[in-house]
């Protein structure tokens, strides 16, 4: 049995026919064709599949696609504006906040949310906020540096001038 569903991803509406047992993660990757959202543990633990739903981070492997309708879904592909990277993305490049890059989309989306909630989080708050994003390369120090570079309102300032 397939259902007709409508997903709003990065501002664009996608009308799809899918079976209800598919997760948002699978549909984003295999139906919508946005492979920036990664499948890691597929069990809600690792955070590589993080997307924003109405601005809030969720693990897309733990949500059925049919259950993600009528919401604004943002994936890593939706962060750049007119080819210009989001300030947090740029900070990850400037500070080398990635190694293999697999966890990076999820980490950046979670970091964006954290910095929107609190423009000046402490190191401790950033670490606790990233508890659900595992980096298998263990590159946490540079990840923390990249996010630290965007705090104290710097992300918001850079966003305003994009």
């Amino acid at each position: 049995m397939k259902l007709l569903i409508s997903l709003k991803v990065n501002g664009q509406t996608h009308d799809l026919a899918i079976a209800p047992h598919h997760t948002l993660l699978g549909v984003l990757r295999e139906e919508v064709g946005l492979t920036g959202t990664k499948r890691g543990c597929d069990d809600g633990d690792c955070g590589t599949c993080t997307v924003l739903i109405d601005g809030n981070p969720i693990t897309s492997c733990m949500l059925l696609a049919v259950d993600a309708q009528e919401k604004e879904i943002t994936t890593i592909e939706g962060l750049a504006v007119n080819g210009q990277l989001h300030p947090v993305q740029q900070a990850f490049i400037d500070h080398g906040g990635l190694q293999c890059g697999f966890c990076t989309p999820g980490v950046i989306l979670t970091a964006k949310y954290l910095l929107e909630q609190d423009p000046a989080p402490t190191d401790e708050q950033i670490r606790l906020g990233l508890a659900g994003n595992l980096c298998r390369c263990t590159g946490y120090v540079l990840i923390l540096e990249a996010i630290s570079a965007s705090r104290d309102g710097k992300m918001q300032k850079a966003e305003a001038t994009r």
Partner: peptide
Amino acid sequence: LGSIQIRFL
């Protein structure tokens, strides 16, 4: 409970 991502769901 879990992570931020899980707590929203």
